[in-house]
Amino acid sequence: MERVPVLKIGDFLLVSIQVDMEDQIALQLQEDLSARIVETGVHGVIIDITALDIVDSFVGRMLSTIAAISKVLDAETVVVGMRPAVAITLVELGLSLNGIRTALNVERGMELLARAREDELFLDLGDDDSAETDSDGAAVRS
């Protein structure tokens, strides 16, 4: 049976979907992914759908399920590389990927996850670090 590989890159897991999703493959992926999240202790999952020409309600639901499972295991999910044609079709069909973060490409996805993670860490540590980031923000504004 075909299987979707789950790769660990730095602090993230990368899932690149290259095959047509079917029930069995989707279930296997959910199992593999949840096992890997626990095993590696990562806090971010990137799902790359660059290779998908069609995203229907089945794939949409699968993505939502994966995001929900990861969330329970304390990992943020971001879907990257959605093609323009796919996005247009989803909008025309009125399907929206509720509760799923998206980014243009893997790199942006990693940035997004890193930023979200940092954000959480700041919260944990209290507001000691806020001065540094404030100055960053000011630099951009000026």
Partner: peptide, 21 residues
């Protein structure tokens, strides 16, 4: 443009962090 630049900078993080705090 100003809005986009501000959002793309780190201030995004600051703002959200502050809001949650």
């Amino acid at each position: 443009l100003r809005h986009a630049l501000r959002r793309s900078g780190n201030s995004d993080l600051v703002r959200r962090g502050a809001a949650r705090r």
